[in-house]
Amino acid sequence: MILTVLIFCLVLGSIVGFLAGLLGIGGGLIIVPALVYLLPLVGVSSEIVMPVALGTSLGAIVITSASAAFAHHRQDNIPWSLARPLMILIAIGALLGAFIADSLSSEVLAGFFSVVVVLLAVYMLLSINASKVRSLPATYVLPSLSFFTGVIASLMGIAGGAILVPMLSFFGVSVRHSIGIATACGVMVALFGSLGYIITGFNLTNLPEWSFGYIYLPALLGIVMSSIIFAPIGVKYASQLPVKTLKKIFAVFLILVAIKMMLS
């Protein structure tokens, strides 16, 4: 069954990498629901399936987001004077989110994930053609919002870009810089969030073999190996395919996945 999970996650990673490169959307929105249905095959009980899915998702995102952040840094897409304070607070929020997740049931975590995914997908549908620009708010607003973004992202197993990019764009940061800041912050979310899931799950006895805390290593390996290969392919096709149409389709797909998780 471990080999089956590894093969499935290689396929999952290729899809996640391609869509992340094509649409600029974090893989956690796809990884978490897929792992929720996959992990029971290796004996993960329903009581801990969500924390394992969330921790594994964040572990996979560490490497992919670090690669993306380095690429954006080389292209001067990250205004570090704005990014650094956000990165510190989003890291604290992500670590806290992992400890909050450990205290919640899988049913509550699945419900939270589903509701936030629906909200993000609806916003994605409504904002594709939006172009209204505002100025940056008071200095304490963005750091405060980044802290709560870290908590929410860690509770969802995502890098937080789906929240940060529209938020920063709303406050007048250019799309290029918004994506750059989001990738840098995504590294902190994934790193500190996955660290929290390792700590909180470290001494549990009901985890499957090859687990490191709440992170299931065979799934992590499969996702990372293939997503790194397919992400550049997605970037290549981003200029050739109707991305706005694909984003609409993807948003509807996310809503359907969230509804399925709520019903089950």
Rank of each mutant, 00 (worst) to 15 (best):
T245F: 14
L119V: 15
V5W: 04
S81M: 09
W80K: 11
A231N: 05
I61M: 09
A34Q: 00
F202M: 14
F192R: 06
L82R: 15
L254V: 06
S65K: 10
V173W: 08
I198H: 01
P208Y: 02
L109G: 08
K248C: 06
Y237L: 15
Q75E: 15
I152N: 07
M50A: 10
S169P: 00
V252R: 10
S227Q: 14
G172S: 11
S154T: 06
F148D: 03
L23N: 08
V36I: 15
N129Y: 13
I100S: 06
I30N: 01
R134F: 11
P85G: 04
A182T: 05
I179Q: 10
I255L: 07
Y140V: 09
V165G: 07
F147R: 01
G93M: 03
V5C: 12
A159C: 03
L29W: 10
Y123H: 14
L35T: 10
I158Q: 08
Y237E: 09
V122K: 02
S146M: 04
A251M: 10
V173Y: 07
G150H: 06
G17E: 12
G59T: 04
V133E: 13
I199M: 13
N206K: 02
L10K: 10
S174M: 05
G97N: 07
I158Y: 05
L3N: 13
P79F: 11
L191E: 01
I30G: 00
A251Q: 12
S227L: 03
L221E: 01
P242Q: 13
S135T: 14
V62D: 00
L195Q: 08
G213I: 08
V116F: 12
L22F: 11
I92G: 07
M1W: 07
I92Y: 02
F99A: 00
G201W: 08
H177E: 15
I61P: 00
I48H: 08
P166T: 11
G24L: 02
A101K: 13
T139G: 02
K132T: 14
Y197S: 05
R176P: 02
A231H: 04
V252D: 10
L89T: 10
C185Q: 13
C9H: 01
L39W: 00
M261T: 13
P33T: 10
A66T: 13
V141D: 01
S154L: 04
T139P: 10
A69C: 03
I100K: 09
A258W: 06
L29D: 03
I163Y: 02
V133K: 15
D76S: 15
L19F: 14
M1F: 12
S227W: 02
F250W: 12
P33C: 06
S264E: 13
Q75G: 05
M124N: 13
D76M: 09
L164Q: 14
V52Q: 06
A130E: 15
V243S: 12
G157L: 05
G24A: 08
V173A: 11
G196Q: 10
E47G: 12
T139E: 11
L38M: 09
K244L: 11
T205F: 03
F147M: 05
G150I: 07
P232C: 09
V133S: 12
G26D: 09
S127K: 14
A153I: 05
